[in-house]
Structures are given as structure tokens and as C-alpha cells.
Amino acid sequence: MKTEEIFIAGFGGQGVLSMGKILAYSGLMEGKDVSWMPSYGPEQRGGTANVTVILSDNRISSPILNSYDTAIILNQQSLTKFEKSVNPGGILIYDSYGITTPPTRKDILVYRIDAMDKSIEINATKAFNMIILGGYLKIRPIVSLESVLLGLKKSLPERHHHLIPMNEAAIKVGMDIIYQV
């Protein structure tokens, strides 16, 4: 990997920003340069939220981009708005929950993950974003699972560290259920 530019978008509360933060911390654990640029403000109070995460072996120039190597899309509004923002040959991962108009582009690789359904099924809705992260890492293993767990430890306050095994399990579930469309 030289540089991986990732865009994550969904509803506020789905864990979009924190998933990006864990990715950034994982990159940090591997000595990469990282940037995490959130949409900020009203998103925290509902509505859509998005974050741009860049991991690179080189120094990162712009933390803000208009097209991405990988887009992870978690709701219909974001899919409609950002499907066009994936670089040709890039990757689009979407969660099927609430999607009425699936992606149509043929010049990118489209992956589907039914993470919301799965998280309800296994009674782990709070780890929904970790299922998504697992799916992404299966397709793009840009950081090792070990680094992700270290990243989790670093980004979570200590009182939540007992949740790390549950998050690890969710990541592994995500790796199993993602598939190419």
C-alpha cells in the first residue's frame, strides 16, 4: 500500500466517525501517516455523517478529497450522493438495510454486506460498525487485525476495554458475510 483513501458515510449514530477513528488508529499502530476528517456539526444530532480517512506510507497532502479508492456507504441518501465519488476501478461497499436503489456502476467493484440484519440476528447492534469494518478489511487488508485491536484499545476509553473481544468477534463476522455483487 502506498496510499488508501477511504470515505465512510451513513446516519449519525451508526458509528461512522468512530469506525473511521479506529481505522486511523490502526494505521498509526503500523507507523503510517494518517488523517481523519469528519463532517462536523449538525450531523452529531441526527442526519447524515461522513468521514474521510487516509492511510499512507508517505506524507499526506490534502485531507479533503473529491473521489476515493473505497467508499463505505450505510444509507440510501449517502449512496445516491456518493456512488459517483468512487475512483474508477475502486471499491464500493454498502449495507443493504434500507437501500431501495442499489448501486449501478459497472466500472467499480461493488460489495454488499448485510451487517444491519446480521447485527440484529446476533444481538450485537452496537457492534454494527465493526461488522462493516471486518467486511472492509476482508476486501482491503490494509492493516492487520492485530493493529486494529491495538487501535481499538487506543481509541476506546479504558472503561470500555472489556468490549474489545466482542468487537473482535464482530469484525470476524463481517469478514465472513461480505460478498461481491
Binding site: 486511523a24 498509526l28 494518517v34 488523517s35 481523519w36 476528517m37 469528519p38 462536523y40 485531507p63
Partner: peptide, 10 residues
């Protein structure tokens, strides 16, 4: 500006 204030970096 808001970008530098809100973004996370090393």
C-alpha cells in the same frame, strides 16, 4: 480554520 481544528492527524 474548521478543517485544521476538526481533523485528526499524527
Amino acid at each position: 480554520d474548521g478543517v485544521i481544528g476538526q481533523m485528526m492527524e499524527k
